[in-house]
């Protein structure tokens, strides 16, 4: 009797409140569902796609610039700040494969999304909340689970504790001798006055920035990284449904990483890049490698580690993506710049 009642309530919910809840809680999922029919290429991104420099005369996002190269195709971008593969995969699953499918999906591959700071980010709870309604249970059950907070719903303190623990306990692996064994040790090492001004005082701004680089990029990606599992799922879904997958590996400020922290950090960044390219090329995906393409000055945040670029940086990445897409969409390609 209860089951019949819940089935009935699910029907009522679908006809009445479901759309309102979806719009309120997971705007991106609604976008994927509603725009699918008119989309040839989906671009899933985070702030790297749409963030611009205030002084930019041209304010187009990476996805918009990419679209200019394929005027006859419809490239739809779906964005949410701080998103990662765990969320992209849920967006992807909203595509109804029985209807008109997109021909390709470009998914942002942000290297920092593999690090502890992003995995245990305080924004994670909000991101997880945004996909509860998209689960494969009946919609009314999903809505109830949302009310019960039945998702990865940790407090900011819990997430911070997990992040600190990972920095303290996860060993950094180098093929050469290196004095720091963990992120915590490396961070502490740099914090002990690595940068000294001419007057003998510590250059705190530089030290802080160098520490950010260590926390943001000092890690070895391995098979058990949760993001790897997410990207694997994305790749599997695309392979299964015959949709081309382009992983857009975002440019990082390798120049500053080198000058502020040193070659060891750059080694890790490149090693991680190589790992990702190798893993996903094997899995029929195209990895668009932008890691070292953008100059340090082209990053809009000079005192922080972000993947936010000025127009020149966005153009370089868009061109690189278009170049990769050109192999699939030869006829549709038009050299726009």
């Amino acid at each position: 009797m209860l089951i019949i009642l819940i089935i009935g309530l699910d029907l009522i919910y679908n006809f009445t409140l479901y759309k309102r809840d979806l719009n309120e809680k997971c705007e991106q999922i609604v976008e994927v569902k509603t725009k699918q029919k008119n989309t040839d290429i989906f671009y899933f991104g985070e702030s790297s796609n749409f963030n611009i420099r205030e002084t930019d005369s041209i304010k187009n996002s990476i996805s918009e610039i990419t679209a200019f190269f394929f005027p006859t195709l419809t490239l739809t971008s779906i964005n949410k700040p701080a998103t990662h593969a765990g969320i992209y995969k849920e967006w992807l699953k909203q595509i109804n494969v029985n209807e008109k499918k997109p021909k390709a999906v470009i998914v942002t591959l942000n290297m920092r999304s593999f690090d502890a700071a992003w995995i245990h980010s305080r924004l994670e709870t909000q991101l997880q909340e945004s996909i509860v309604l998209a689960q494969s249970y009946p919609n009314i059950i999903n809505r109830f689970l949302l009310s019960l907070q039945a998702f990865d719903n940790k407090t900011e303190q819990q997430r911070e504790a997990e992040m600190l623990k990972e920095w303290e306990t996860t060993p950094l692996i180098f093929p050469f001798p290196f004095k720091y064994k963990t992120v915590r040790e490396w961070d502490n090492g740099i914090a002990q006055g690595t940068y000294i001004k001419a007057d003998g005082s510590w250059d705190h701004d530089k030290i802080t920035l160098a520490c950010h680089y260590v926390k943001g990029y000092a890690f070895n990606i391995h098979d058990n990284n949760p993001r790897i599992k997410d990207f694997d799922e994305i790749a599997d879904w695309c392979n299964k449904n015959k949709v081309s997958l382009y992983l857009n590996l975002m440019a990082e400020n390798v120049e500053y990483a080198d000058s502020l922290v040193g070659k060891e950090l750059v080694f890790l960044m490149k090693q991680n890049r190589d790992y990702l390219i190798k893993r996903y090329q094997k899995n029929n995906c195209v990895v668009v490698d932008n890691l070292e393409l953008v100059d340090g000055k082209e990053f809009t945040d000079q005192n922080w580690t972000t993947e936010h670029y000025g127009y020149k940086g966005r153009m370089i990445i868009a061109k690189n993506v278009a170049k990769a897409l050109n192999k699939q969409f030869v006829k549709e390609y038009k050299n726009a710049y």
Binding site: L5, I6, G8, L9, I12, Y13, T16, L17, K25, E129, I140, I141, R143, F144, L146, S147, Q149, N153
Partner: peptide, 17 residues
């Protein structure tokens, strides 16, 4: 009664913790 309560509980409960 059960129907109304269950619907309100499942579909209209607050979503913040």
């Amino acid at each position: 009664f059960y129907t109304v309560l269950l619907f309100c509980l499942m579909a209209l409960s607050g979503t913040q913790k």
